[in-house]
Amino acid sequence: MNIPGELKYSKEHEWVRVDGTIITLGITDYAQEELGDIVNVELPDEGDEVHREESFGAVESVKASSEFFSPVTGKVTEVNEPLLDAPETLNEDPYDEGWMIKVELSKPAELDDLMDADAYQTYIQEESK
């Protein structure tokens, strides 16, 4: 299980890369493995508002559709458009090519509630018990 040390993690199995007030958001290696072969991704549009704990998109395998809930509040500044045409990227490279959206934070303090890599590692071990 790949859990890069420099990222932050949510309980919804999303990763966050922080760059000033802009964050990049994606789903973790654990999440993509649990979902299986991903065949479709739904993302918000650039300029949309996302809210903490509200759905910002969905990731779909052949027989399941999983909504993802945003760990942060803010405005979408960039969307990984190529991902929409190549959803398998989420399986192949979840932390890099498979990033989903960039968000300009309106409540940076929300980041404090995220886990670091070690805490996330423990979290998924607990969850899969």
Binding site: V39, N40, A58, E60, S61, V62, K63, A64, S65, E67
Partner: peptide
């Protein structure tokens, strides 16, 4: 492309 449908997405 069945994830569009009610038996999977239900209300969505």
């Amino acid at each position: 492309m069945a994830t569009r449908e009610q038996h999977i997405r239900r209300a969505r």
